[in-house]
């Protein structure tokens, strides 16, 4: 039972990181029908940007205010990088065949990955201890402050995003653009601005995810975006790509699945089982758990 609860806590923590990153994939796919393969590397870059903001801008301060500033500044920087990425790598290919855009995405992924290596070097860096190492022992189950923070902040961000998309005028424009871009233009929606907005939101959520990865795992490498990106991508597929609540659900389930495999089977097998899960899902429910949202005529 202790293993179960412990892995539940661990699973929810990594699940919320997956979910934050998965949202970036799913939102871009929703509007552009494009898998932004560079997103994982953007997440990796955020951890390094966060590191630099901590050392260069904040003078290694770890007060609560300093941590908040590090998070906000990193998210803002990555949002700008996201806008540039869309302008440079995707907008010129808007009318081109999908395959061209996918190749461009893979190219952008390599550029960002190598960019990180050029700026910060090929060796693993240690992410600063921004959050004090506080642990609570709840009858055999150990939970850290970092875990609580990751889970809590992720939930707040996800609920916020959900409300934004479902309840606001601009959120309605995002949904309209993801359903039918031409029809959205006929409503007077500036689809280019909506796409820029999607990249701002996706990149800043990914940036928070990247900082969480740094905080939780501590060691950050220039090529880690591939691994975390792949997990988040699977989470997005699992929930139903293009579906925002789906990405949240998919991320959480994938995190839990991973943690339980690690706890009950073996952590070396976690990846293999994850991919088996992906294959099974794709066979049984090709559109993911929540699926593409299609209104069927009754």
């Amino acid at each position: 039972m202790d293993i179960f609860l412990q892995q539940l806590a661990n699973g929810l923590t990594i699940g919320s990181m997956f979910a934050l990153v998965a949202l970036g994939y799913t939102m871009v796919y929703g509007v552009m029908k494009l898998i932004n393969f560079a997103h994982g590397d953007m997440v990796a870059a955020s951890a390094f940007v966060g590191l630099t903001v901590y050392t260069q801008v904040m003078g290694q301060a770890t007060s609560l205010a300093a941590v908040v500033v590090i998070f906000l500044l990193t998210a803002a920087i990555m949002a700008c990088v996201g806008i540039v990425l869309e302008r440079v790598a995707y907008r010129p290919l808007r009318e081109a065949p999908r395959l061209s855009a996918v190749v461009s995405a893979l190219g952008a992924s390599l550029v960002i990955q190598n960019g990180i290596m050029l700026i910060w070097g090929p060796r693993m860096k240690i992410f600063p201890e921004l959050v004090p190492q506080v642990y609570w022992d709840l009858g055999g189950v150990v939970i850290s402050l970092i875990q609580v923070l990751i889970l809590g902040l992720s939930l707040v961000l996800m609920v916020g995003l959900y409300l934004f998309v479902e309840k606001t005028r601009m959120g309605a424009a995002v949904r309209a653009s993801s359903i039918d871009q031409d029809a959205a233009r006929l409503m007077g929606i500036n689809v280019n601005s909506i796409i820029a907005l999607i990249f701002i939101i996706g990149s800043s959520l990914g940036a928070i995810g990247g900082l969480f990865i740094g905080l939780y795992y501590r060691g950050i490498t220039f090529n880690m975006g591939w691994q975390y990106g792949l997990y988040a991508f699977i989470a997005a597929i699992l929930g139903g790509i293009g579906n925002i609540p789906g990405a949240m659900l998919g991320g959480m389930l994938l995190g839990l699945f991973n943690a339980f495999i690690a706890g009950y089977v073996s952590s070396t097998w976690a990846d293999a089982f994850t991919f088996i899960l992906l294959i099974v899902i794709l066979i049984v429910r090709p559109t993911g758990l929540l699926g593409e949202r299609v209104a069927e005529k009754v």
């Binding site: 309605a172 949904r175 309209a176 031409d182 029809a183 959205a184 929606i189």
Partner: peptide
């Protein structure tokens, strides 16, 4: 537009409100 192009997964009222987006 031709073929109506209503936003199928949104409600009727949400569609109408999008018409007043500007």
């Amino acid at each position: 537009p031709e073929g109506r192009r209503v936003f199928g997964i949104l409600t009727v009222e949400e569609n109408l409100l999008l018409g007043a987006y500007t």
